[in-house]
Amino acid sequence: MIYATVADLVARFGERELVQLTDRENIPPSEVDADLVETKIGDASAFVDGYVGQRYRLPLTGCAKPDGAGGVEYVAPPVLARITCDLARYYLHDDLAPENEVYRRYKAAVRELESIADGAALLACPWGGSPGEPLADDVQSGGGETLYEFAPRVITDDALRGFG
């Protein structure tokens, strides 16, 4: 699931900033390079999946948001949309100093993702429901099914005789 769109970044940070970050040729009339922004959004979404996938089955189903016509549309959980925007914005910048606001927001986003991955924070849908299926506590077990059993091995002098 892609968690944000070019329009989301424009709404959060303004078209002017995105033009400055993406218009490499700087020839008027300047405009947002949507392809570049979408690439960075894809990178950010993959980064988010690396953390979210430790707690939720991927791809997320999304939050069921009422569409105003009696139906629903499935959208990314708002917290992931915000985090993805912050990450994509960071990816669009070059050579940021650690004290830069964009860098601080990036670091805060990573801390939030770590909290989700650790189970200290859960994804929520403001319209109710769950954005996806939580994984079992033991992700590596494949649902609790034991695939192999190993007996402990005792190593003694007699067992090692002949090796060496």
Rank of each mutant, 00 (worst) to 15 (best):
T84E: 00
L58I: 09
P98K: 02
S45L: 03
D35K: 14
Y74W: 13
C85Y: 01
P78D: 08
D94F: 11
K40F: 04
A34F: 06
A44I: 05
N100Y: 06
V48A: 00
A69N: 13
E99C: 00
A46N: 12
K40Y: 04
D49H: 10
V79F: 00
V72W: 05
F47L: 15
D94V: 14
G68R: 05
K65V: 13
N100G: 02
V75L: 15
H93D: 01
E73Q: 11
E101P: 11
N100H: 15
G62E: 03
G53A: 07
E73T: 12
Y51L: 05
A108M: 11
R104K: 15
I41R: 03
F47E: 12
V102N: 03
D43I: 06
Q54L: 15
P59I: 01
T61M: 12
G42P: 03
V37A: 03
V102A: 10
R89F: 11
C63M: 04
R105K: 13
D43G: 10
D49W: 11
E99P: 00
V72N: 15
E99M: 06
H93W: 08
L58Q: 10
Y91M: 06
Y90W: 14
A109R: 02
T61H: 12
T84C: 14
R82A: 12
D86Q: 13
D86F: 06
S45G: 07
Y106T: 02
A108Y: 10
V48I: 08
A69R: 15
R82N: 04
R55C: 09
G50L: 07
T84P: 00
G70V: 12
Y56A: 07
P78L: 08
V52Y: 04
N100R: 05
Y103G: 04
L80Y: 06
L96R: 07
T84V: 01
R57Q: 14
E99L: 08
L96C: 09
S45K: 04
G50T: 10
